[in-house]
Design a protein around this nucleic acid. Sequence first.
DNA 1: GTCATTGTGACAAACGATTGCCTACCGGAA
DNA 2: TTCCGGTAGGCAATCGTTTGTCACAATGAC
Lengths: 340, 340
Amino acid sequence: MVQKIKLSTIAESLGLSTATISLALRDSPLVAIDTREKIKDQARALGYIYNRRAASLRTSRSGIIGVVVHDIMNPFYGEILKAIESELDRSRHTFILSNHYDSVEKQRTFIETLLQLGGDGVIMSPAIGTPIEDVKLAEANGMPAILVARSMDGVDLPTYRGDDSYGISLATNHLIGLGHRTIAMIGGTDQTSTGRDRYQGYVNALRKANIEVDPNLRIPGPRSKQGGFEAAVHFLSLPQKPTAAVCWNDLVAIGLMNGIARAGLVPGQDISVTGYDDLEEASIATPALTTVWNGQTEVGRLAARALLDRLSGSHDPDGIHLIKPEMRIRQSTSPHHPRA
Amino acid sequence: MVQKIKLSTIAESLGLSTATISLALRDSPLVAIDTREKIKDQARALGYIYNRRAASLRTSRSGIIGVVVHDIMNPFYGEILKAIESELDRSRHTFILSNHYDSVEKQRTFIETLLQLGGDGVIMSPAIGTPIEDVKLAEANGMPAILVARSMDGVDLPTYRGDDSYGISLATNHLIGLGHRTIAMIGGTDQTSTGRDRYQGYVNALRKANIEVDPNLRIPGPRSKQGGFEAAVHFLSLPQKPTAAVCWNDLVAIGLMNGIARAGLVPGQDISVTGYDDLEEASIATPALTTVWNGQTEVGRLAARALLDRLSGSHDPDGIHLIKPEMRIRQSTSPHHPRA
DNA sequence: GTCATTGTGACAAACGATTGCCTACCGGAA
DNA sequence: TTCCGGTAGGCAATCGTTTGTCACAATGAC
């Protein structure tokens, strides 16, 4: 770096004032059109780099939006992020990403960092156990927050997520319709709203079909492929001999299918398995996974839009916006037939 | 936001000057220890939020580090990012992430944004076709750059990546050792150094074993599960009837295995398949994938360290640092036996 | 009693862009 | 000639921290 080019550098080289340069570069009609062009050419020629920190110090708008989710490597969040990214891209906002891995601590650190940077807003999928003060912290300092994928009790923020209870009942009903009666539920946790809703959806569907709900058919915990893979052993040794499994998400389902295959059974034939989310991967799994689309792209897109709208003044109605999930039937489920 | 708390707010409330507050909050020995404590307490009580933009305007250090790779949803990069994240975390740096999807355009926009924000440095896996000026742009404006996973010709930056040529020869030799003679190579592109190196490693290994290299056994292109899955059809219809496939990466390998299974063959038995990278997923695939560990965690860790070192003055030697890959033998490869 | 020395903390000038306010100038109407 | 409306562009204060330079007081040595 030989020397920083700043507005005054351009101004002097052209015999104008920095005010004019500033206005010209931002296409203000206060500067005559050809003066404007001349200024822009000169800026380009000198290799001028706009200093956002200086600008945002004055304007208190930084163009930075924070996004924090459980784990960006999880494709479910990945698909949400992609949707957010493409929505934010077209509005010249920069976004800062972070994982919280369900650590409240890490999440708070992120919010604080974002405040220090003067973030304009934040989109978050709150960590398990997030205290209300942490999101209040953002709002209290003028940084609007939007929730995705998970809701939080006791806080009235715009929230975008799938209708979990309805979605899981789609999957459960599908299996019931195929004749299955002993249906296990693999994965998930009661510590999130999502977890509670999904279990409830499963329970409701069974009840409605007059199938007794056996709490031992629930294997809570797994949320990843690895987890699903490991749960297969437990699943296959259940005394009730389930013929089907409703999984927490596609990753668990794929892991479970791998585990079932490893044990010498044929997933989709011997055991029916449903996923949840409909990740890109679901359709190329072996067998192709029957699952429930959870609207991740919609969630991301709407959340980003809502935040941008809010930044530009119009206050979107708070509250939870549920996306309707849709069933995707593939080869991992088949009619019930007694196990050999 | 009722009212912004700033240094002067604290200063007035305590009858001190902003200078003292500033020094105290950063634990300067220039301020007496109990004055310091009193100031910190007051800052906490008032809910003071450090304004990094103002600070960095003065100091021209922002604490921001940019990272741009092909696709953060790709687990290979994901594992690199995790390593970078954990290294950067302990040094109080914020990092900004972006995908370039191999668009030079998108990558340049990112670099420009980072410059505007006053980024302290950037770690990048350069997009295909990145012009030298783009990385020079960063360096010329005082923002050091480090390359990961891919190298760039004609530019002398610190680069951390696996030894592709050596790594792929491990996989190829493994298959040759099992008796395979007709070995296809699936995926990759000549447009990156990585692509060229891996193909070269494959060719060299075959030559050394006196196996004729048939360019038609190469199916370039695929880099994802989807791609591997789709390539299966082409692969299975090759007139040379390959008995094994060296894949570009684990994703392609897993996709290919799925495609092979879909066609009624048993991957790992009828066709031996090797992956590359040794993602977490490789060991739970069905069959468990024989692959080559590509040192992603090392790459990320070392690159982050190198950047931090450079930021703190010590200039790390430029040039390419190769990580030695290691073979991981699992069930997706088996001795050659004639196809039925 | 003087003179250093040390410890505290204040002053004020940056950093670079934005913007409300003001001036100068031009052409046209009365 | 005087006045008016309008356009182009300059001035200078401001955003919140940091930091080099100083000032002042207390201490201790001689």
